[in-house]
Nucleic acid binder design. Structure first.
Lengths: 343, 343
DNA sequence: CTGAAAGCGCTTACAG
DNA sequence: CTGAAAGCGCTTACAG
């Protein structure tokens, strides 16, 4: 290689060149007060000249901080996680933290969990669904004293930061929206039962029907796993029934897209012959035709808020069991996949 | 909290309890040879009892290793990056590394780059497109002596690990496939010009037409940026022309999905009235209807190979300018979006 | 506003 | 096969 690998300058090199003590250099690089302007200038100049880079590892070892935040995910793909990732990455960058992503596949995979928690001392950890409701993970985090934030949790945990939307109300409103369009025979495709939101969304659907005097039928409620394939399967089940529903509410957009695909194969026109709605406002919602009416969940804002409450200046509450918590607003995004039966 | 935060045991605690020196404990935890079995057993037992966790930071500081690999991305969402992420994450886990994701948005964003490179001492860095062709990034990495792997690069760099497919040949074959189905008026939607593969794919399209004696027309080649929206815009442009193409080859699947959406809105039947093919075998390819015929690129295998060549046992070549390199096989995935005109 | 000393928890030579 | 010593590059008390 024609590139010289320069040996890194250390803090004491800078101190020597600037004619001050290491501690003063340290003060400058940690934005502490009480450093005279002229020394500060000299130090910055010396640091620039030597191309000084404070070592993360040394800072961590000496200062009991790692400058590393963990994001624990179940599965690193999909639009939801991508949004969480993007938002958390941005927040980390702005706050001077680095993000380590760890995949915790199986529920209560203690071996992996212990390995991860043991090797890195996280300054904070963000948990995405469904890991945010894994008690093994929560307890391990508590035991190691790592401040934790949960995105979209089911159960409450007062000692951890928590951001969420009201899945129940959102599903209730969406169902009401369909009812308002004259639909009575509305099917529901459930979400992955391991995700806390699945039950909430189902409950919203059921209660809305009941609230409007529409009988609830198990024939119209079919299982799903949040995947495109499971949405397809659910549609097949639904279409095999005696009377086809006029509307299908899928607990997420991926499944709604699966329904759309099956409808198309069978020559069922959407929305004129069948209305379909989803949940999440996933990227897929606007990629399929017709674009899906869905519930928008402000995932990026939620992740940003979680980070702020976890690592921000006013995050001290996390230490004494009074962690921040916030419920974000959802929004029904009307697009082209619902027909007005009263038209 | 009702959870006791136990103070972490250190290596010397373990050494004391096991009745050996720290060095011997260190040997055990680094899988070095030359430790008698009985001492090893004692040490492991003591470590378990004390719940000893070697500190990543101390190991890094003392041993000049960080156990951290960097993944630099342009934009952390999308199916391609998700696959790279998933695969790299798995490889890291197996090899005992942690993955830090860094977003380098703008081309040559030196400030952010320097900050990132300065604060963490990466044991290796993986570059995804289009960053893998950003000379500022490449040179900065060389200057800091960090072993680097590039996924899908355009230009060659013998001192860095490199994995790729032959985009030119793949696009050539795909075009030939359309020609074989009787298409002559084949349009092409270009990719983001900042991605090296865009030019290769375009070249493959052009050469294939020429190779089969079909005139190439600028009217049939429209710009795109790899996004759904740009695919839509390109379709509008193409449909505004005097004679509609019988087939459209989009440089990626997202854009192909955009074309599909516009076709649907205009009542153009796919594939009977218009054939559409994409590239990448992105998740979107099987979510839309009809499912897209496309070129499958084994992104996960490529990322795994890159990691192996970068961090694996036989990765020494990276140090002396003889980095590994591999061209993976692509595959044309025939689905439902192409009509046979000779039928 | 500034600094000297000790120490964070490991690994690297080096010696046996 | 094993260990004592020094040191990685910072920050934390502590003292002025």
């Amino acid at each position: 290689m024609s590139f010289v690998k320069t040996k890194n300058a250390t803090m004491s090199d800078v101190a020597k060149l600037a004619g001050v003590s290491m501690k003063t250099v340290s003060r400058v690089f940690n934005n502490e007060k009480y450093v005279s302007q002229d020394k500060k200038d000299k130090i910055l100049e010396a640091a620039a000249e030597l191309n000084f880079k404070p070592s993360l590892q040394a800072r961590g070892l000496a200062g009991h901080k790692s400058y590393i935040v963990g994001l624990f995910v179940d599965e690193p793909s999909g639009d939801y996680i991508s949004k969480v990732l993007r938002s958390t990455l941005r927040a980390c960058g702005e706050a001077g933290y680095h993000l380590v992503v760890e995949v915790l596949k199986e529920r209560g995979d203690e071996a992996k969990l212990r390995r991860v928690l043991n090797s890195i001392r996280f300054d904070g950890v963000v948990l995405s669904p469904p890991i945010c409701d894994d008690l093994v993970v929560l307890n391990a985090l508590r035991a190691s004293g790592v401040p934790t934030a949960r995105i979209g949790p089911g159960l409450d945990a007062p000692d951890m930061v928590q951001v969420q939307i009201d899945d129940y109300r959102a599903a209730y409103e969406m169902t009401e929206y369909l009812i308002g369009k004259g639909h009575k025979r509305i099917a529901f495709i459930k979400g992955d039962p391991n995700h806390a939101c699945s039950m909430e969304r189902e409950r919203g659907y059921v209660r809305a029907l009941q609230g409007h005097g529409i009988p609830v039928s198990y024939d119209l409620m079919v299982p799903g796993m949040f995947s495109f394939a499971s949405g397809r399967a659910a549609a097949e089940t639904l279409f095999a029934g005696a009377v086809r529903p006029t509307a299908i509410f899928a607990a997420n957009d991926e499944m709604a897209a699966g329904v759309l695909a099956v409808a198309r194969e069978r020559g069922i026109q959407v929305p004129s012959e069948l209305s379909i709605v989803g949940f999440d406002d996933d990227a897929v919602a606007t990629v399929v035709s017709p674009a899906l009416t869905t519930v928008r969940q402000p995932v990026e804002e939620m992740a940003a808020a979680a980070f702020e409450m976890l690592m921000g200046d006013e995050a001290d509450g996390v230490e004494d069991g009074q962690a921040g918590r916030r419920t974000h607003a959802y929004e029904i995004r009307v697009r082209e996949s619902v027909a007005d039966l009263k038209g």
